Amino acid sequence: MSLVSWLIIGVIVIALAYYVTRMAKDREDGERHDPGLAILEFGRAFPNEAIRALHETVDGNAVFIRLHDGKAGVMRNYGRHYSCHVIQPGRARATSTADGKGFVIEFLDAPTQNGEFSFPSQEIAAEVGLWLLGNYVSAKDKAAAEDAKAGEQPTA
């Protein structure tokens, strides 16, 4: 074979390698930033929980979910699957980051979910913070209601 033939084959191989790697990267990015997939995965993991709203972190590695009953959930993206966790009331601690666009969260029931989560804006971070706070407040309200109920005297 001549030098021109080898050159043409080399160009074709390089173009094919570029195309394959580019398609693989696009597919990974598409999977990471698909809220529809997040909804399906969470529904599969927790079929009795209704989703009201969700927000994705800037890097696409986590999705925070507001549930119908005031609880919250989090999904961590691990490439081809999500790890889903419903945050039980009072079982998460959050500290705001310096820029106000995120949180460092410690999940007491699921330490593997702990981490720093940044959102696209302070408004979204504040909304997710309210979900977490509402989750925490609902645990206190529930405990207070149970205490009050235990202290009530039956009426005749």
Rank of each mutant, 00 (worst) to 15 (best):
Y19D: 11
Y19I: 13
R22K: 13
L16S: 14
E31P: 10
F64P: 02
E28S: 15
G90W: 11
L7P: 05
H55A: 14
D99E: 09
S121L: 10
F117N: 00
K101G: 02
D34C: 08
A38D: 03
V13W: 06
V104C: 09
Y82N: 07
V74L: 05
V86L: 01
F46W: 04
H81N: 12
R80D: 13
H55P: 01
D29N: 13
I39V: 14
A62R: 01
T57A: 01
H55S: 10
H33W: 12
A94P: 01
A53R: 04
S118Y: 03
R32T: 03
E28Q: 12
A50R: 14
I39W: 03
I14L: 15
G79D: 05
G102V: 01
H81I: 06
V74W: 00
E49M: 06
L40Q: 13
E31I: 07
G30M: 06
G100F: 06
G36Q: 10
E56F: 00
Q122C: 14
F64L: 01
E116I: 02
P47D: 07
E123V: 15
L16H: 12
A125D: 04
I87C: 02
T95D: 09
G90C: 09
E116S: 10
A92F: 04
D29F: 06
I9T: 11
F42I: 03
F119T: 01
D26V: 09
I39C: 08
G102E: 03
G43W: 01
I51A: 04
K101L: 05
E106C: 07
A38K: 05
D109N: 10
E31H: 12
G79L: 08
N61Q: 14
D99N: 14
F64K: 00
M23F: 14
K71F: 05
T57K: 02
F107V: 05
E123G: 13
A24I: 11
A50N: 08
I51F: 05
F103Y: 13
G73H: 02
D59I: 09
A94G: 07
I14K: 10
P35S: 02
E31S: 06
I9V: 15
K101D: 01
P89Y: 06
V63L: 03
H81Q: 09
M23I: 07
K71D: 09
A110E: 10
G36A: 11
A24W: 12
S83W: 08
L108R: 07
Q113E: 15
G129D: 02
T97D: 04
T97F: 03
D99S: 08
F103K: 00
E123T: 13
L37R: 08
N77M: 04
A94K: 11
G43C: 09
R52F: 05
F42C: 03
T97E: 09
S83N: 09
L16E: 13
V58E: 05
E106M: 11
V104G: 07
Q88W: 14
D29H: 05
V86H: 03
P111R: 10
R91N: 11
I14Y: 09
R22N: 15
A72D: 00
L40F: 11
D29K: 12
P120F: 01
N114Q: 06
I8R: 11
G43A: 08
H85W: 06
P47K: 08
H68S: 14
I12N: 07
G100R: 06
G100D: 11
I65Y: 01
F46Q: 05
I105N: 00
S83A: 14
T112E: 11
N61T: 15
